[in-house]
Design a protein around this nucleic acid. Structure first.
Lengths: 243, 243
DNA sequence: CGATCAGTTCGGCCGCCGCCGAAGCATCCC
DNA sequence: GGGATGCTTCGGCGGCGGCCGAACTGATCG
């Protein structure tokens, strides 16, 4: 009974457009400053500050101060999971025509809290499934023995992931592609490893990802998939100079 | 971007105490009349009607008319999953002293959408895990080969459950016990089968469950667990007469 | 057919909450 | 120290939305 009241409180926090925008902006797992979040939420700094205070007070987000900046981030995976499940309800309940313009960068490859989403995420998940390295059900999955050796060869530490007490392997309905990509501990481990190998890299301030020229062929080779659906990799020299 | 707006809309629907109460009341998967829901939400019938209209309009609940009654139910598992994930955030974010009085009936055994929760749910999950019939990770799990035969012997159709495209097996943090019970397709199949066998039965209008005298020993025997933590089964003769 | 009951619709009241301007603190830089 | 900049607090305005009383619809029953 009182549980429902607490749930209403939490839901009401997410139920404000500005706060929902803030939480969505944090969904990629990074820390953002109050100013950046105010901009993302399309509200003034004072207003954002109020919202951030409420979210932090309810322990949906955490803060760390750094100089005169305050960095906010999601309080944990459980918050990301909640946002995802709300998004699922939206997808099921309001299957309206997707007139919304999704940036091509985001569609191609992006981070979804701590794993890879977008065309790249779906392509990788398809490849892993086709090669019987993983199996999916509606809201769960598992890594096959052949998958174990495959991930080991890639340098992905599955035992470590398993110890994290997270599920190994979980399909997550892709927001833009409407087909599952790989989430869970394995999804996070893959994203971590591919970043480490510089096969993928975050674009400057955004959830979008770049597939590096090295990564392009390396991913196609090791995952046995084709990335031809993706746009050509952005000129890396330019990016390095710009960065 | 617009996705965040939609999410805010859905979250705002859950964010009202009366509506949260309504959704929680429907969490056991049954259909309730508008009047019952008004009572559950502690609001007048007119007010409840307004809320129900909004929830139905947003496709969070479905309606069927029967005579002069209108029966409302959750629009699907995705809604139950969302409510569960919100509840998880509440549990993690507000670990305050549980001063709330939980009814002993509810703590002992209850339905959680379509599977068994409460002490019984946790006990069953523990037994299944101890006997290596299932394995759990943080947010996923699997049925072992020994589990397959175990469930088959109980008359639980795992293949059918697998075809439903739901995860086989998923731990779900128990609301009252703070430890995992078994959810997913297997959880639902177990609940269905145990009801079929009359080992458990719903108490009259509520999520709470009764363990029948037959069920008491049968469950202890077949699952290899002790139910001594549970209260003695309520007098069945009385219940039959009353029902 | 009137009476009753379940449920919804209408209308108006009221309070909560999101919003921004202005001011108040910190921190950093010269 | 002075003056930026980043963020928060305060205060008052305005509107959305939840609430209930009253009236309406439609089903059931004698």
């Amino acid at each position: 009974m009182s549980e429902a009241l607490d749930m209403a409180t939490v839901a009401a926090l997410v139920g404000d457009p500005a706060r929902a925008n803030i939480l969505c902006a944090l969904l990629d797992g990074r820390s953002l400053t109050a100013g950046e979040l105010a901009y993302a939420a399309h509200v003034s700094p004072q207003t954002a500050s109020g919202h951030l205070g409420k979210l932090a007070n309810a322990r949906l987000i955490d803060v760390t101060q750094q100089g005169r900046h305050r960095y906010y981030r999601l309080a944990g995976r459980h918050v990301a999971a909640m946002m995802e499940s709300i998004s699922q309800v939206v997808a099921v309940a309001q299957p309206r025509i997707r007139a919304v313009r999704i940036s091509e960068d985001m569609r191609n490859a992006r981070m979804c809290y701590d794993h890879i989403a977008g065309r790249l995420g779906v392509t990788l998940a398809d490849a892993l499934r086709e090669n019987h390295h993983v199996e999916f059900a509606d809201d769960g999955g598992l890594v096959t023995p052949s998958g174990e050796t495959f991930f080991a060869k890639l340098g992905i530490d599955l035992d470590g992931a398993r110890q994290s007490r997270r599920v190994f392997c979980r399909p997550c309905l892709d927001w833009s592609e409407r087909r599952p990509h790989l989430a869970g501990a394995v999804g996070a481990a893959i994203a971590r490893r591919l970043t480490e190998l510089h096969w993928i890299a975050r674009k400057r301030d955004g959830r979008a990802l770049t597939i590096t020229p090295i990564g392009w062929s390396a991913i196609e080779r090791s995952f046995g998939c084709s990335l031809h659906d993706h746009t050509v990799p952005a000129r890396p020299a330019l990016r390095v100079v710009a960065g």
